[in-house]
Amino acid sequence: MNNYQLMITADDKQVVLERILQVTRYRGFLISGMNAKVNTGTNVGTIELMVRSERPIELLVDQINKLIDIKEVKVDNSASQQCIA
């Protein structure tokens, strides 16, 4: 099981946070933590997402990137780590 931290920047549109959470769950990643700033009136939402999975993180990054309102998804390698499950 690997831990990853994603830094997501999005157009601050309707339900963008729900969309990210739905895709994350459906694609086989457990959410272990989150820090989100959305609906701030700045038109930009920022979401830090901590996830766990046995699947490669690229699969999730690609799927989140497909969401219409997403501007950028970065994997924070310094905060991501492999753990012995």
Binding site: Q14, V15, E18, R19, Q22, Y26, L67, I68
Partner: peptide
Amino acid sequence: IFGLSLACTKHSFQ
């Protein structure tokens, strides 16, 4: 339906 649409559409609006 907006919430239900998240898993079955490419995108949705309300």
